[in-house]
Design a protein around this nucleic acid. Sequence first.
DNA 1: TATTGTTATACTCTATAACTATA
DNA 2: TATAGTTATAGAGTATAACAATA
Lengths: 141, 141
Amino acid sequence: MRVLRAHAQGESSPDLTMPQFRALAFVGRNEGAMLSDVAAFLGLTPPAASKLVDGLVAARLLIREIGTGDRRRVALKLTAGGRRIYQRAVESAEQYLAEHLAKLQPDVRGEVLRAMQALRSIFDDPPEVRSTATGKKNTND
Amino acid sequence: MRVLRAHAQGESSPDLTMPQFRALAFVGRNEGAMLSDVAAFLGLTPPAASKLVDGLVAARLLIREIGTGDRRRVALKLTAGGRRIYQRAVESAEQYLAEHLAKLQPDVRGEVLRAMQALRSIFDDPPEVRSTATGKKNTND
DNA sequence: TATTGTTATACTCTATAACTATA
DNA sequence: TATAGTTATAGAGTATAACAATA
């Protein structure tokens, strides 16, 4: 992760900080996520997440939409520009990973894959989003 | 790493931020490291690293020592209190990892270990320290 | 009354630019 | 002249507390 992060910092769009990019990427993976989902995933307090989103909205990479059912909720979505930056970063990271993983023998690569799955299973990666903020709650509530 | 970091944030000494802890841990692993080693490892500019160290020195967790050979260099060392906090965090993280890894079958655990070694080999983890700042340069210079 | 999010305020993190001391 | 580090300044990140709006 450290190596990948260093790579991302070298590549990413000039004026976009790491926290901003993490928030952007989260919304990229979870279109319509609530603000509190962003806060929970990034480990931030709601005010901190709100301010972070402020910057992304000001940069025209994200938009806030009022929840259609529960008007307290805010649904976050990427703008066209936000999606462009997000996808470009994903592609860059994937290419970087692919280049390096190609150095491994196929059987070792398979072993790496199974190891990753094993780690994910025991560290209980929780679902990223509680709801889509577009109205009804989901069963996690 | 995300899970482990969340764990560390819950455990760690109350008034110690993540960047501060990362710097502390780096010096813990690299006693006598130069300031520029800290900056390079954390991906910070020298002024940012210097200010970060300021806080740790003020908290009496780290001390600055003038390099014995090259007086421009600063050797960073842990105080007794700094070492105590560092070791406690390492033990906490190790215990957390051990508890979770114990859920895996021994052969899967072996596979995870080999996968980690394979990843390290292809992502070229660089040495953390350029010199010990206690005088003579090393062969990397 | 509880939940979602924001505004207000303060401190830390981080960068660039300019500087000091040493080599 | 080049290198290691600090000081000065400014903007982003983050927290706690207080608030507004909605449920």
